Simulated assay, not measured.
Amino acid sequence: MPLIAVASAVIGILVVRVPRQDVGWFAYAPLANDTFSSNSLVFMDGTARLGYALILAGMLLLAFWAGYRFALRRTGRQR
């Protein structure tokens, strides 16, 4: 189980770090009579969401496994 969790987290990190295509975006703010432009605006696509979900699943699986092992050791039962 820990190998699956670590593999899931590592694959998630690799998926998140895939280079993204730049998106140009601007908006007109009618009350300010000015144009807003941002170079730091980030859109999260489906691939990034998948990567973050894999990282989350891996970390949750590791936490469950660690808690299970700790409980077994505390009760004195080893599997």
Rank of each mutant, 00 (worst) to 15 (best):
N39M: 01
L3C: 08
N33E: 12
R17D: 14
V6A: 10
F70K: 10
I13Y: 01
F70Q: 10
A27H: 02
A53C: 06
S38C: 03
R79G: 15
G24M: 09
S40T: 11
A29F: 01
G51D: 01
I13M: 02
R73H: 13
L61I: 09
L60P: 07
Q21N: 11
S40C: 03
I13T: 04
A32V: 02
G76Y: 09
M44E: 07
N39L: 01
V6I: 13
W65A: 15
P19V: 05
F64A: 08
A9G: 08
M59H: 09
F43D: 05
R49G: 10
W25S: 03
V42M: 08
F64V: 07
F36N: 05
G58N: 14
G46V: 12
M44G: 07
A32Y: 01
I4E: 07
P30D: 06
P30M: 03
W65L: 15
D22Y: 13
A5R: 08
S37I: 07
G24K: 07
R17S: 15
W65C: 14
R74G: 04
T35Q: 00
F36H: 13
S8Q: 07
D34I: 00
G58Y: 11
A9D: 06
S37H: 06
N33K: 14
R77N: 09
G58E: 08
R69G: 02
R17M: 12
M59D: 07
G24S: 12
F26C: 04
A71S: 11
I4A: 15
D22Q: 12
L61K: 05
A29H: 01
D45Q: 03
S8A: 11
A71V: 09
R20F: 05
L56S: 14
M1I: 13
G46N: 06
I55E: 03
R77P: 04
A48F: 03
W65N: 15
N33I: 11
F64I: 06
M1E: 14
T35H: 00
F36K: 02
A27G: 11
F36E: 09
R20Q: 13
M44I: 09
R74N: 10
A9I: 06
V10C: 12
A29E: 03
N39V: 00
L54V: 06
F36M: 13
T47S: 03
A5Q: 11
A53V: 12
L56T: 14
T35M: 00
F64D: 04
V18Q: 00
V15M: 02
D22F: 12
L61W: 11
A48K: 00
G12W: 01
A5W: 06
F43Y: 14
I11E: 05
G67A: 13
L72C: 15
Y68L: 14
V15N: 03
N33A: 11
D34E: 06
I4Y: 13
L62Y: 12
G24T: 04
S8C: 05
W25H: 03
L62P: 01
Y28I: 01
A9N: 05
A66D: 06
